[in-house]
Nucleic acid binder design. Sequence first.
DNA 1: TTAAGAGACATGCTAATCAG
DNA 2: CTGATTAGCATGTCTCTTAA
Length: 271
Amino acid sequence: MNRLHHPAGPLGSLVKCFWYWEGAPQTHTKERLMPNGEPAIIFNLRNDPIRIYDSGDTDRYSTFGHAVLSGAHTRSFVIDTAQQDRVVGIQFHPGGSFPFFRMPASEFENTSLPLAGLWPSTANDLREQLLAAPNLDVIFALMERCLLEQLLRPPELHPAVHYARALFCREPHATTVSRVMDKTGLSQRRFIEIFRNQIGITPKAFCRVRRFQRVLETVHRVRQIDWTEVALNCGYYDQPHFIHDFQAFSGFTPTAYHARATEHLNHVPIA
DNA sequence: TTAAGAGACATGCTAATCAG
DNA sequence: CTGATTAGCATGTCTCTTAA
């Protein structure tokens, strides 16, 4: 069973969705997650702690308790799916986790941290309540209320960051950092600092991740793919550059990714 | 024969650093 | 917080190898 919930009100601009997953254990035991520059919070409602594997060496892993904050990523990472058959999560918009934590979002770049360390008095309580919840509506309501209570800052991004994010998401291939920067009226120095502070990764890195995501969307559910055409349409200079970027982000060559891809374009089963 | 994938290298840009 | 500086990274261009 799989369900999404989209929040209204002030959370709407920060949270992309709340999601719930429950199902039989997967036949594969690991999944490689593609980077998309969006932070997330995940609760495992089973007893096993959450495991995240070293991106390069998938025999090494760290455990994170039952709830984890995953920061904005520019690299893929590997999770354990064997024990994750009942999981709820909060998928943020880029920069959406910023108002809920004391630290700048850049502290979470390419990392995951146990939520208990960040919300000491809240994380475990919330999980207990989620476990006791009678149905999904209550689960989503609990998470929504908890988030509202955890707001440490105004629930919006700096106007320059908001503007830049929108442009980078809409046309990652057709814009440059400096062009966007000029429009904001901030100095180069200041713009990069604020952007990284709130979104969690540098503007250029964000732009490249969004371009990569556009490729995944383009080839999603397409059988016969002309990779050169995809590369050019998505704004890559040529096929070699496209392949290089694709591997750096995903850990797969384009064809290897496509061979393994499922309906969840950011989750690729391995092993 | 064709397309995927890898790599070398020059040039310009970005991001981090440092001084004030 | 800002401006100047600069190392390192991304891009543009070309060439080469491998697999189908």
